[in-house]
Simulated scan of single mutants.
Amino acid sequence: MAPTGKKAAPAKGRGSAAGRTRPSLSPRLIVEACLELLDAEGADALTFRRIGARLGADPTAVYRHFRNKDDLLLAVADHLLEESLEGFEPAADWRETLRTLFVRNRTVYLSHPRAAVLATVRITRRPAEMRVIEMVLAALSDAGFPPEEAVRHYRALVDFMLSWSCMEATYLALDPGTRHDDESAWSGAYAAVPAGTHPHIAAAAPYLASVEDDANFHFALALMLDAIAARAPTAARAPEADG
């Protein structure tokens, strides 16, 4: 598990071969080393032997903090959520709380795409994830939803953000040549589709290549929040006009 405390201070009396002190192992240091390995080399590099080597420690030392590789992966997933929550405070408006939170989540996932591909499909059962769930449910409660309805809207929103982030992270993990070929298809293959067989694609072709991923996410998130606001009980209880 990735705690929210400060990084461990160097252990007294423990030195490397060069005579320099090394920080004692802690769950956070292990998780950070794991994340560095994922960023650099992907999931295949995630072994206790490689993690121990990166930290200058015996691999068995990692087992003192994590039962197995899956336990470590869940800690990494929670660490990403923790990173997205740094400095975040809910806004007075429930919509702004949800918008900012999900934008932060996505930003962190895309900064670690190889880790995000693994993390976005897991339920960590750890502190940062519980904070996110509590914040989302609190925002939906502020919108007027009772617990049962809040949970349904929570799942729709969070699954949207996780699925979108996983899709983008998977794409970012592709090699640059493959990404370039896919991106150029909008201004190439689709722009050349004949109007006789695909009239709607032909009419939309000038605009297909102009949609940017970042703007598209914000647009889709706004659609979700608009739909929830329209269904919110507080909107239904708005005072009626006199007359």
Results as ranks from 00 to 15, higher is better:
1 M>R: 11
3 P>G: 06
3 P>H: 13
3 P>S: 11
6 K>C: 07
7 K>D: 13
9 A>Q: 13
9 A>W: 05
13 G>L: 09
13 G>P: 03
14 R>P: 00
14 R>A: 13
17 A>V: 10
17 A>Y: 10
18 A>L: 13
20 R>S: 10
20 R>F: 09
21 T>D: 07
23 P>Y: 01
24 S>N: 09
26 S>H: 02
28 R>S: 14
29 L>M: 05
31 V>L: 06
31 V>S: 03
32 E>F: 01
33 A>T: 01
33 A>C: 02
37 L>W: 04
39 D>V: 01
40 A>N: 09
40 A>F: 03
41 E>R: 15
42 G>E: 04
42 G>V: 04
42 G>T: 04
43 A>M: 05
45 A>N: 07
48 F>H: 06
48 F>R: 03
49 R>I: 10
50 R>W: 01
51 I>W: 00
53 A>P: 02
56 G>I: 08
59 P>F: 00
60 T>C: 09
63 Y>S: 13
64 R>K: 12
64 R>Y: 13
65 H>M: 11
66 F>E: 02
68 N>M: 06
69 K>R: 15
70 D>N: 14
72 L>R: 02
75 A>D: 05
76 V>Y: 00
80 L>A: 07
80 L>K: 05
80 L>W: 05
83 E>M: 11
84 S>P: 02
88 F>I: 02
97 T>H: 02
98 L>H: 01
102 F>D: 06
103 V>Y: 04
106 R>C: 06
106 R>G: 07
107 T>Y: 07
111 S>P: 01
112 H>V: 00
115 A>G: 02
115 A>D: 01
117 V>S: 00
117 V>A: 06
118 L>A: 12
119 A>L: 00
120 T>S: 09
121 V>Q: 13
121 V>F: 03
123 I>M: 10
126 R>C: 09
130 M>N: 13
132 V>A: 04
132 V>C: 12
134 E>H: 14
136 V>K: 03
136 V>L: 06
137 L>R: 14
141 S>G: 15
142 D>M: 10
143 A>S: 09
144 G>Q: 05
145 F>G: 05
146 P>E: 14
148 E>K: 12
149 E>I: 03
152 R>T: 12
152 R>Y: 08
154 Y>F: 15
156 A>L: 14
157 L>S: 01
158 V>P: 03
158 V>Y: 12
159 D>A: 09
160 F>E: 07
160 F>L: 11
163 S>F: 02
164 W>R: 14
165 S>T: 02
166 C>W: 11
166 C>Y: 09
173 A>G: 08
179 R>Y: 10
179 R>N: 09
186 W>L: 14
189 A>L: 13
190 Y>W: 15
194 P>A: 06
195 A>Y: 07
195 A>L: 06
198 H>R: 12
202 A>K: 06
205 A>P: 00
205 A>D: 04
206 P>M: 07
215 A>F: 07
216 N>F: 15
218 H>R: 15
220 A>M: 14
221 L>E: 04
224 M>C: 12
227 A>E: 11
227 A>K: 12
228 I>H: 00
229 A>P: 01
234 T>I: 14
237 R>G: 00
238 A>D: 08
239 P>T: 03
241 A>E: 13
